[in-house]
Design a binder for these strands. Sequence first.
DNA 1: CTGTTAGCGCGTTCAC
DNA 2: GTGAACGCGCTAACAG
Lengths: 345, 345
Amino acid sequence: MTGVKPTMSDVARTAGVSAMTVSNVLTGRRHVSPATRSRVEQAAAALGYELNLTARHLRAGRTDTVALVVPHFDHPYFGELAARLAALLAAEDRHLVVEQTGASREAELAAVSQARWQLYDGVLLSVVGMSAADLDDLHTSVPLVLLGEQEMPARYDHVRMDNVAGARLATAHLLATGSRRIAVVGGADPDPASGMKPARTLGWTLAHADAGTDPAPELLVRAPADLTSGRDAVRRLVADGIEFDAVFAVTDTLATGVLAGLAEAGVRVPDDVQVIGFDNLASSEFTVPALSTVDPGHERMVTEALRLLDAVARGPAGGADGGTGAREHVISPARLVHRATARAR
Amino acid sequence: MTGVKPTMSDVARTAGVSAMTVSNVLTGRRHVSPATRSRVEQAAAALGYELNLTARHLRAGRTDTVALVVPHFDHPYFGELAARLAALLAAEDRHLVVEQTGASREAELAAVSQARWQLYDGVLLSVVGMSAADLDDLHTSVPLVLLGEQEMPARYDHVRMDNVAGARLATAHLLATGSRRIAVVGGADPDPASGMKPARTLGWTLAHADAGTDPAPELLVRAPADLTSGRDAVRRLVADGIEFDAVFAVTDTLATGVLAGLAEAGVRVPDDVQVIGFDNLASSEFTVPALSTVDPGHERMVTEALRLLDAVARGPAGGADGGTGAREHVISPARLVHRATARAR
DNA sequence: CTGTTAGCGCGTTCAC
DNA sequence: GTGAACGCGCTAACAG
């Protein structure tokens, strides 16, 4: 209630020591005699002293904080990612803060061009809207690891899932269990250079090729990756009278919407239409029926991302490449999770 | 590639001006002649200068950043909360960072006792594990607004939902549509002083009293608020042979688990058992069948929370009370959302 | 084990 | 419209 915030010197003065000693007590980086320590602690408590972290950050040049920058806070995929990273970092007394860009290219560029990242020891950037070219224009001295399913410039470390293999696995399973008209919901033209959708769509195409068939073009349903779009995709398919006996949804979120759409249309899953998603969200076990999906190896991805980030932070000179500028690109293997929306093989 | 990060003085030197002028160009707080401005901008670009925000923060004593501290990143309720807040703040060029405590009392206390909050202009704290007594012991000079459904000390601003009224509404609807044995999943003894569960359970009790009945005690099923627990609650109910013709789940997450459990047991919803949840998550519209639920007035909650935070930040002296220490406690009204898991009245 | 000195890189204050 | 000096609060480096 005195109004002014006490500083370290204030604590030092009332404890009868120097500011350095107070600092030592607080950081524990140097030995302090028990007697001195307790005098300092009492003085700090008496004054209601609170360490000023911004000053520490400026002086130390470190913040012990890693940032995760995601397009949306409210997409379960990113929430789960954040939770996993936070758990890993907390184990080593480091902190995670999460920031949101908004998914558009413009919003991501704006977020990225800001000097905010200087506040962190490293940044994990989940890219969705930006292109490889945009990323190439990016200049930051902060250790940066990219997460995301599109093509990325070689000069950044990058962790992603095996989208093609996962989608191929899912589609192959649908073919092997008797489906012949497999819609890909959230599919995209395989040409565009960005995003997970072309890769997963490619997996769908390849699985058909593997089976010696060719998917009908009207079974490729473009859609943004949200719940509403999944439901709408089914409505559209039904309204257009397009026959299908299975759906490969390129994300679990889309798949959940698809299940809602199929239920609404009175279609039985998996008897009439099988469904497989991609991402293995925590909630996917609890859809009705329980969603079969592709697990992208979440744990692997977060441990690799953190490993790469620490490697960049420690050795800014070269990295895995020995100085050419190329860095590691990790691909986490995908695996099929069998539940109730697809038949057993 | 020179290795050393340029500072403002470096930029100033190569632009042939003083550091102050560089600062003025960057902040835009004072007029700078166009010619000087462009010289500074070119010098900054040439050197690859990046503003050091930690220094600015120390000097300015402000960070233009608000923190949201939540128990879990990966619970959709908090993800949606974060997204709403971020949208509101972005509109005024302020930033939101989200941090996670872990939901236990110990983890929350640890998170809270740290000086980290000094890094923010204000903190929105989502309380789950801590008691009112714990919060009373809290001493921080950072503007703080509490979010959470338990009792909170009067000296903090606090925003919450109308849990009792919402639960009463839901239960009353179930009674009015013919259900007589309404289980409350996630229910709790109304005595304990903390948490949303007792309040929502109380609403369930009161609705029965309103109807002149008394719920059977075996219909109160205690459970943590997650998907697995919702499903397990149904399994237990069924295994124990307890008859029920409706479920009021105290969160949508629990309700989603309940729907999975009912589907697994071959129970038809809403024909055999009606279900109503609480929270109105974005995903609740897409369960099968679509979940009827209680909407807690999300938008209202976030605007109020931000309004209170700004009020604390601006007038640290008094607040709504005029200096007695008591502050505003806002209760957002609840409303029933009719979908497919409950019959129309 | 403890103290002294000297900044970290900005922005406020006051001058011109 | 621009500059000089100082200090925000803390800690690395070197004493002793």
